[in-house]
Design a protein around this nucleic acid. Structure first.
Length: 524
DNA sequence: AAATCCCGCCAAATG
DNA sequence: CATTTGGCGGGATTT
């Protein structure tokens, strides 16, 4: 009956660090200095405010300051993450109760599910029981990423992306070049598992597990195999759709996909694994995301996988590293020892990698993009500074600056702020591909031409689109529940305008600054 | 107008 | 049948 329905009050304090509305602020303030930080503070102030309101009433007062941003999944996720350490103690069981979280963050359950799903896709949490999840933090993140990268390679995503990038909106990768690669498993890949963790009781792959969780993993895979670690939504959507059973390249489908991608991107962003950027090309800029998470991860878990040196493309079979759960059988492999091992290694790595930009070497990882691009590095450093950051810690001792920060870009291409206005294109920010033409591998970047401002629209799909917009339900759009909301929203937005100047899309955008500046001085 | 993406209905999956 | 999960897309907000 109710062994786990009701969260026991015991844990209440969430173990080590109970979040306090001010703790975060203190940190921020202490670190503050440039105006950018001010903005951060401002933002957190708002957060605190929202947080403070206790009673569920006061639509006018409490809600006044809220805007869409305040309810964004990203922010929510950040708040969620704040209450757990990046590297939890193995001994402790940080278990998460959805109800608690939902109420503590004062959001509907639904939202929590979204977050949990992508976190789960990274194995940062795992469902332990009905209403419960277990927190793992970044303990296995490295491994997960390694596995995902591999899976992505096996999937031939890299090639796909290239195709789309220069070939423009093409349909499926029918081309089937003489790619002797021959990825035998052309098949859709399901949830990628880690040997040690996850996949406990609950249905990790209860057959309909075709979305968020999986989509999230795929999305990450894209980043991990993309030469310049940048992925635009269009491309991602394109690829992810193609994957899903056959075609059905509806425009609607695309739209929906993109929506989801945004959702995922938002939590990925709060995890500081990616950042929003813009790829600029002749046609104009295109929103995209750039991987800013760890670049090199150890590939421990595979046990015997270890002796396999080819880091760049461990051609090894997926059995070793990634485990694709397909059918009904919930085959889980648990190796507590592995987890432990991994953890210790991870720790070590963390320390080591905290040294400023360690050029490609170490694991001899992807050597294919091993080019000395001082410029890029330099810019990267600037970006980092700008970036600074403020999460992770929040009071604890063990926190440590967190690992992903530094490694950011041994060779990751970056955005170079361009002072002089370019002709026409109005590109104030250019995407500087690390390999501008020298390497053969650079072909991916050579021309970023893609779809036109028309965007989503694709010639082929146009023809038979209308087919059936499948607006199954949803059409009833009754006004009853909505009306109130609408009014409320209206109120909110109104007050928003008066209370808040433009600057906002910032915090994590390294580029926001330059873009705003320049755009104001010279609009494209 | 386009890019974002919140909200929450309601269908599956589970209990 | 009650709940828990979580697709999915309308449409509000932002840019």
């Amino acid at each position: 009956m109710g062994p786990l329905t009701t969260p026991e009050k015991g844990v209440e304090g969430h173990c080590v660090d109970p979040w306090t509305p001010t703790s975060n602020l203190k940190i921020l303030i202490s670190a503050a200095s440039p105006d950018i930080r001010n903005r951060e503070i401002e933002r957190s102030l708002e957060e605190a405010e929202v947080y403070c309101r206790e009673d569920a009433e006061e639509p006018e007062e409490a809600e006044r300051m809220t805007s869409r941003k305040d309810k964004s999944l990203g922010l929510l996720c950040r708040k969620f993450l704040e209450r757990f350490p990046n590297f939890p103690d193995k001994d402790k069981d940080y278990d998460i109760c959805l109800d608690d979280v939902a109420s503590e963050l004062s959001v509907e359950r639904r939202r929590i599910y979204d977050i949990m799903n992508v976190l789960e896709s990274l194995h940062m949490v795992s469902r332990s029981a009905k209403n419960r999840y277990m927190w793992h933090g970044r303990t296995n993140l490295s491994q997960t990423l390694c596995v995902l990268q591999k899976a992505g390679q096996e999937q031939g995503y890299s090639r796909r992306m290239q195709q789309l990038r220069l070939g423009g909106p093409h349909q499926q990768p029918e081309e089937e070049e003489e790619e002797n690669q021959q990825p035998q498993q052309n098949r859709e890949l399901c949830f990628v598992e880690l040997p040690g963790v996850e996949c406990k009781l609950a249905s990790v792959n209860s057959r309909k597990d075709k979305s968020l969780r999986v989509m999230s993993q795929k999305f990450v895979m894209l980043f991990l195999v993309a030469c310049p670690r940048v992925v635009s939504l269009d491309i991602a959507a394109q690829i992810l759709i193609g994957e899903d059973h056959g075609e059905a390249q509806d425009k609607n489908k695309f739209k929906t996909k993109v929506r989801r991608l945004y959702d995922i991107a938002n939590v990925l962003r709060s995890l500081k694994l990616i950042e929003k950027v813009h790829v600029t090309e002749e046609r104009g800029r295109k929103p995209a995301f750039q991987w800013v998470g760890p670049e090199k991860f150890q590939q421990v878990q595979g046990v015997e996988e270890t002796r396999n040196t080819t880091a760049a493309s461990c051609g090894s079979s997926k059995e070793n590293c990634s485990k694709k759960l397909f059918s009904d059988k919930r085959s889980f492999t648990r190796h507590p020892s592995l987890i432990k091992l991994a953890r210790s290694i991870q720790e070590d790595r963390r320390r080591v990698s905290s040294a400023p930009s360690s050029p490609a070497k170490a694991t001899a990882g992807d050597s294919l993009m091993d080019f000395p691009n001082k410029m890029a590095e330099l810019a990267a450093i600037c970006k980092l500074q700008l970036d600074h950051e403020s999460s992770g810690s929040k009071g604890s001792e063990t926190s440590r600056p967190s690992l992903p920060r530094t490694p950011v870009t041994p060779l990751t291409p970056v955005l170079l702020p361009r002072q002089q206005q370019d002709s026409g294109g109005g590109a104030y920010v250019v995407y500087a591909p690390p390999c501008v033409r020298p390497q053969p591998t650079s072909l991916a970047v050579r021309s970023m031409t893609f779809d036109s401002p028309t965007g989503v629209k694709r010639p082929g799909a146009e023809g038979q689109t209308e087919a059936s917009p499948r607006k199954r339900r949803r059409e009833c759009k009754d006004a009853s529940p909505k009306l109130g909301e609408i009014l409320q929203n209206r109120l909110k937005s109104r007050s928003l305008y008066s209370s808040r100047p433009p600057l906002r899309a910032l915090h994590l955008d390294p580029e926001f600054q330059s873009s705003t500046n320049l755009s104001s001085r010279h609009s494209p």
